[in-house]
Design a protein around this nucleic acid. Structure first.
Length: 210
DNA sequence: CTCCCGATAT
DNA sequence: ATATCAGGAG
């Protein structure tokens, strides 16, 4: 299984060598906000909203004092806009009260923020700070990992443990980015392009829908 | 488990 | 019409 995982890692690296976070951001705070917006929403849609958002609100203090309805209107098209606006505001209020207005670079502090779960914390740690304390397990990583037979689990935290056991820590950040890109381009949820898949010869679920 | 929710592909 | 999109909270 470890040998198989190494093969998967090598091919992912070969086919998605420049895979990186596709959310647009210039600071840990911008990535934190973009990550909250990305829940059940395409990164492409988030990237249409964030330029105007980041121009208008620059600091945690800006988000902490913006009226709820004003922020809702600015992020409406990303869906779940009431929850997301509430979380961004509460999140930034906590940043001001407990972290000097800065985004913390520790897992325990990040997951304690309202609206930030383990997945979002892993995104911020890995992409903004270069710290791979875990593996980002989102909808794409879940689907790709299961189809490739790297895990049998459905619970993201159990999938994360399986991936952490199968791949060396040095690969965790790039691994998730590559899997996300693979999940978007080839191993799609609805109609996977198995004919064009680089794992066509080794995938246990090649041609098997869902 | 349910709810939150708009935009897009199928 | 329905499934899905870099989820999280109650």
């Amino acid at each position: 299984m470890r040998r198989y995982a190494a093969t998967v890692a090598r091919r992912l690296k070969r086919h998605y060598p420049d895979a990186t976070c596709s959310l647009h951001f210039r600071s840990p705070l911008e990535l934190l906000v973009a990550t909250i917006l990305s829940a059940q929403c395409t990164d492409e849609r988030v990237n249409q909203v964030t330029p105007g958002l980041f121009e208008k609100y620059r600091t945690a203090a800006d988000y902490a004092r913006v009226p709820q309805e004003e922020l809702e209107a600015a992020i409406r098209s990303t869906g779940f806009f009431r929850n997301k606006a509430k979380n961004i505001r509460a999140c930034c209020q906590t940043l001001l009260q407990q972290h000097g207005g800065e985004v913390p670079s520790r897992m325990d502090a990040l997951v304690a923020l309202p609206g930030i779960g383990r997945k979002s914390a892993n995104v911020v740690l890995g992409t903004a700070f270069g710290i791979g304390v875990g593996v980002v397990v989102d909808t794409h990583v879940t689907r790709v990992s299961r189809r490739l037979g790297l895990t049998e689990h459905k619970d993201p935290e159990k999938i994360e443990r399986d991936l952490m056991a199968l791949f060396p820590k040095s690969q965790w950040i790039d691994l998730a980015h590559a899997m996300v890109h693979h999940g978007r381009r080839i191993c799609t949820a609805r109609k996977p392009k198995c004919g064009a898949c680089p794992f066509g010869d080794i995938c246990p679920r090649i041609g098997v829908p869902n």
